[in-house]
């Protein structure tokens, strides 16, 4: 497969605590996702929701990882970009 959006959970020292913690994270992610999709007027069919939430939880973890990466773009004043042109559209440029 050419794609990978599964977020693999790390093994925990205390399995029971890990189950509780994972359930809490899942519940928070589900509530958050329901709010967001409700705002967009989207009802996720119940039988599809498990796969959707698994993907959403993975994305949450990845977004958190990206927020933690130290890059020299942090603190750019006033949202001003150091790029010229639209290289967001041209990452290979």
């Amino acid at each position: 497969m050419a794609t990978d959006d599964a977020g693999a959970a790390a093994p925990a020292a205390d399995p029971a605590a890990a189950v509780d913690s994972a359930a809490a994270v899942r519940s928070a992610a589900e509530a958050e996702f329901d709010t967001l999709t409700g705002r967009l007027g989207i009802d996720v069919p119940a039988d599809l929701k498990g796969g959707v939430l698994a993907g959403y939880q993975g994305l949450r973890d990845m977004a958190a990882l990206l927020r933690s990466v130290e890059t020299d773009h942090r603190g750019r004043p006033g949202g001003r970009d150091d790029r010229t042109g639209n290289d967001e559209e041209r990452p290979g440029a």
Binding site: V44, G51, G55, A63
Partner: peptide
């Protein structure tokens, strides 16, 4: 199930990803 999760990406997280990308 692969496309729908993107509904939850905040604009700030998308833009952060684009900064990390550069």
């Amino acid at each position: 199930q692969r496309v729908m999760p993107g509904a939850g990406i905040a604009a700030a997280d998308y833009l952060r990803a684009m900064d990390v990308r550069r």
